[in-house]
Computed example of a mutant assay.
Amino acid sequence: MPLQPNSRAATATVISHVLLASALLLIMWQGLLAGLLCVCVGFLATRWFSPRLAVLTRARNGLSPRLGAALVALIPILLVLLALPRTRGLLLDAPAQYRELLAFMAATVMELRDKLPPDIARQLPEGALELQSAIANYLARKAGTLANTGRAWLAGLLFAYVGLLIGALAAARPSIQPLKPLAAALHQRVHRFGETFRQIVVAQFWIALFNTSLTAIFLLVILPLWGYKLPYTMALLLLTFLAGLIPIVGNLICNAVLTLVGLSVSPWVALACLVFLVAIHKAEYFINAKVIGHRTHMSVWELLTVMFVMEAVFGPAGLVAAPLFYAYAKKELQATGWV
């Protein structure tokens, strides 16, 4: 007996939820989060470029999306060609650089008493040496895990670009109407996920860019004016940007790493790094509360809980995915009136 239209639509909605949830779990399990994020970036960028290119070129409606997709596909290639002579070591050899940075931080931890002023060093308890050894060993183990990740890093960059192409091509594809029930339900799920991505990840991108710009001014302008220069500056700036994409926890990572690297130069440099980072992160908290918290109605305790669970299950990728996935799930539940 065939299903009635209402029953068919309800069944299609349930199946669409199951399919999308399964796809997201598969993406996390296979480590394809970067590709998923780039699919969303490619899609939104193409949709943003298309109407503007239509105005500039007076192209037909069917042509402007394809022009937008071509532009999105070409921009990364042009950026790499222009920037590669200067950033080859940063992009292609990133795992090796961060392995050296972790080893450098481990050595700095073990030399903590020598780095601090004598009066402060004498105040450290004897048990602090065990804590120093534990932290240094942890950093050394993390450095060891990066020893053989060069090929995986390059594969990740390739997957990210393929994801960008998929998103651009999907945005350039002409819409088909009317849609069958399951296709319509899946379209609604994907549209809602894209809206969540635009609200959270795009806003967090600008927050991370703001944070990285101020940190670059501090590391490349202010500190050299005082006669100091931190090692691994470019790697630290890239880490600041990537960590800035993770709400709350990313700030803690940036504070710890930059302060510890500053301590290798001077205790006063470490103090200056800490004070500066706390100041700009206070501004970032304000932006987070206004932009992300207002749009998604997520409180800090909710976000931290989900990030803790996702990191425990999926590792560092879970920290990045947690705000996006949780906000999307909450949006779906709000749409059905459950929360």
Score class of each variant (00 low, 15 high):
Leu3Gln: 05
Pro5Val: 02
Asn6Cys: 12
Ala12Cys: 10
Thr13Asn: 12
Val14Asn: 06
Ser16Gly: 11
His17Asn: 14
Val18Arg: 14
Leu20Tyr: 02
Leu25Thr: 04
Leu26Ala: 13
Leu26Val: 04
Ile27Tyr: 00
Gln30Ile: 01
Gln30Arg: 07
Leu32Ala: 03
Leu33Asp: 00
Ala34Arg: 03
Gly35Val: 05
Gly35His: 04
Gly35Met: 13
Cys40Ser: 09
Phe43Glu: 07
Phe43Cys: 06
Thr46Met: 10
Arg47Trp: 02
Ser50Asn: 05
Leu53Phe: 11
Leu53Thr: 06
Val55Asn: 09
Leu56Asp: 03
Arg60Pro: 00
Gly68Thr: 11
Ile75Gln: 06
Ile75Leu: 15
Leu78Met: 11
Leu78Asp: 00
Leu79Trp: 10
Leu79His: 07
Val80Pro: 06
Ala83Phe: 11
Ala83Asn: 05
Leu84Pro: 00
Pro85Gln: 11
Pro85Lys: 13
Thr87Gln: 05
Leu92Gly: 00
Leu92Arg: 01
Asp93Trp: 02
Pro95His: 04
Ala96Glu: 00
Ala96Leu: 03
Arg99Glu: 00
Arg99Lys: 12
Glu100Leu: 04
Ala103Pro: 00
Phe104Gly: 00
Met105Ala: 02
Ala107His: 00
Arg113Cys: 12
Asp114Ile: 03
Leu116Trp: 01
Pro117Val: 06
Pro118Asp: 07
Asp119Arg: 15
Ile120Met: 12
Arg122Met: 15
Leu131Val: 07
Ile135Phe: 00
Asn137His: 08
Tyr138Ile: 09
Ala147Lys: 08
Ala147Tyr: 01
Gly150Leu: 08
Arg151Val: 11
Ala168Phe: 08
Ser175Arg: 15
Ser175His: 13
Leu179Tyr: 07
Leu179Ile: 08
Lys180Glu: 10
Pro181Cys: 10
Pro181Ile: 07
Ala185Gln: 01
Gln188Glu: 10
Val190Tyr: 10
Val190Arg: 13
His191Arg: 15
Arg192Gly: 10
Arg192Asp: 07
Arg192Asn: 08
Arg192Val: 06
Phe193Val: 08
Gln199Leu: 15
Ile200Val: 14
Val202Ile: 13
Val202Met: 14
Ala203Asp: 05
Trp206Tyr: 12
Trp206Phe: 14
Leu209Trp: 04
Phe210Pro: 07
Ser213Ala: 15
Leu214Ala: 08
Phe218Pro: 02
Val221Phe: 02
Ile222Lys: 04
Leu223Asp: 01
Leu223Ala: 09
Leu225Gly: 08
Leu225Lys: 10
Leu225Met: 10
Gly227Gln: 07
Ala235Val: 03
Pro247Tyr: 08
Ile248Asp: 02
Val249Pro: 06
Gly250Asp: 05
Asn251Gln: 15
Asn251Ala: 15
Leu252His: 11
Leu252Ala: 15
Ala256Trp: 06
Val257Trp: 00
Thr259Arg: 10
Ser264Ile: 02
Ser266Val: 09
Ser266Pro: 09
Cys273Thr: 01
Leu277Ala: 04
Val278Leu: 14
Val278Ile: 13
Ala279Thr: 09
Ile280Arg: 08
His281Gly: 11
His281Ala: 12
Tyr285Thr: 13
Gly293Pro: 06
Ser299Glu: 09
Val300Arg: 14
Leu303Asn: 09
Ala312His: 04
Val313Pro: 05
Val313Ile: 14
Pro316Thr: 03
Val320Lys: 07
Val320Asn: 04
Ala321Trp: 03
Leu324Val: 06
Phe325Val: 09
Tyr326Leu: 11
Ala329Asn: 05
Ala329Val: 10
Lys330Trp: 05
Glu332Val: 14
Gln334Gly: 14
Gly337Tyr: 11
